[in-house]
């Protein structure tokens, strides 16, 4: 089974890209699709209805969606393999930019919109820098010069990333991506590892406690003017 993990900020075009990939491979490969989100997601229903493929969604709820992704990805791979899927597509929620959902196997794709701003690729940290492929969407909304400025900026920050541009609604110029997917190796379930380091830990805020102030919380948290070395906080 091949694995494609799609990440990127909300409204960048992740689902549109997933749909193009499904459209391209649905007659060749058995595809399974997993959407990870926080409170609401419709992508699984959309893709099931449009292409009749195997889909599933997972709500992370109070847990950070990328953290949740790490926990359930093992189950997802098992689910895909049990259903004889040949390609598993995982779409992340794409919210916090601290970590990245990409693994040491399969393909990690960051989806960035042409209009997301020139500094976005730098600000997004690991979600961009650890991706194998960057797909720039909505190129019909900006001038050719601006597209080239954005590409140049990404190339200068992330020299090894494979860049491609598309209008994901129409699926223009994605042959290169399809080629990389078809040539990607099957994953080995027992050797899956996160590419990047997750944040240092989770705390009581991460798991949903709403109370404000130090006395309600413990875990790896940092005081506003606290020293970096003291971030291991034991609670009051």
């Amino acid at each position: 089974m091949k694995l494609v993990i799609i990440a990127g900020p909300p409204s960048a075009g992740k689902t549109s890209l997933a749909k193009q990939i499904v459209k391209r491979f649905k007659d060749e490969l058995t595809i399974a699709f997993l959407k990870i989100d926080v409170v609401k997601a419709f992508e699984d229903l959309e893709l099931k209805k449009e292409f009749g493929i195997l889909t599933k969604k997972f709500y992370s709820g109070d847990l950070c969606p990328d953290h949740a992704g790490v926990m359930v990805l093992g189950d997802a791979v098992e689910w895909g393999q049990k259903n004889a899927a040949e390609l598993l597509i995982v779409e992340s929620a794409g919210l916090c930019l601290r970590c990245s959902p990409y693994l040491n196997q399969g393909l990690g794709i960051i989806v960035l919109s042409s209009i997301s701003g020139i500094h976005a690729p730098e600000k997004m940290g690991a979600m961009v820098s650890l991706a194998d492929i960057a797909v720039i969407t909505k190129i019909d909304l900006v001038s050719q010069a601006e597209r080239e400025v954005l590409i140049q900026k990404i190339k200068e920050v992330h020299t090894r990333i494979i860049l491609m541009e598309t209008n994901a609604l129409q699926g223009n110029s994605l042959n290169r991506l399809y080629d990389l997917i078809i040539k990607s190796r099957d994953i080995d379930r027992d050797k899956l590892m996160l590419k990047g380091n997750p944040p240092l830990g989770t705390c009581t805020i991460c798991v949903g406690k709403k109370e404000v102030g130090w006395k309600h919380h413990f875990g790896v948290v940092q005081k506003l003017d606290g020293q970096i070395a003291e971030y291991l906080y034991r609670g009051e």
């Binding site: 042409s114 209009i115 701003g117 020139i118 500094h119 909304l141 900006v142 001038s143 050719q144 010069a145 601006e146 080239e148 400025v149 954005l150 590409i151 140049q152 900026k153 200068e156």
Partner: peptide
């Protein structure tokens, strides 16, 4: 080169910076 119908730039750059980056790209 293509001049599209776009009449808006989204990049938060000065005209000089914009042209400098584009010159590097080209």
């Amino acid at each position: 080169v293509m001049i599209t119908q776009n009449t808006k730039c989204f990049a938060d750059l000065t005209t000089e910076e914009f042209l400098q980056i584009h010159a590097r790209a080209r």
